[in-house]
């Protein structure tokens, strides 16, 4: 493995396992361009029938909450259990929540 510094920008890979399911983050790949990124994603993450659809997104385009901000973003939700639908019994037909 030579040229580790020269493998192109990073892309985040999202896979949809079945129709109607949400795309899930699978990991990341390197690629010089869109074509290469989606092909690399296919070869690295979908070799064992993991999905039926694939997205790649430039990692640099992803907006994330920084660690220093995470308390103000997320902790206020911790003590508001009444926002969770845990007080209801799920109807039997519901497979996913």
């Amino acid at each position: 493995m030579s040229n580790m510094e020269n493998q192109g920008p990073l892309w985040e890979v999202f896979i949809q396992s079945k129709a109607g399911q949400p795309f899930k983050h699978a990991g990341s790949v390197h690629g010089y361009d869109k074509e290469m990124a989606i092909e690399n994603a296919r070869d690295v993450y979908t070799r064992r029938g993991e999905g039926i659809a694939l997205w790649v997104v430039p990692s640099s385009e992803i907006v994330a909450v920084s660690a220093s901000e995470s308390n103000s973003f997320f902790e206020p939700a911790d003590d508001k259990i009444y926002r969770h639908p845990t007080f209801y019994t799920l109807p039997e037909g519901v497979k996913q929540m």
């Binding site: 493995m1 030579s2 040229n3 493998q7 690629g31 690399n40 070869d43 690295v44």
Partner: peptide, 8 residues
Amino acid sequence: PFLEEDLA
């Protein structure tokens, strides 16, 4: 040249 290409 790099991991992804190796796998491909």
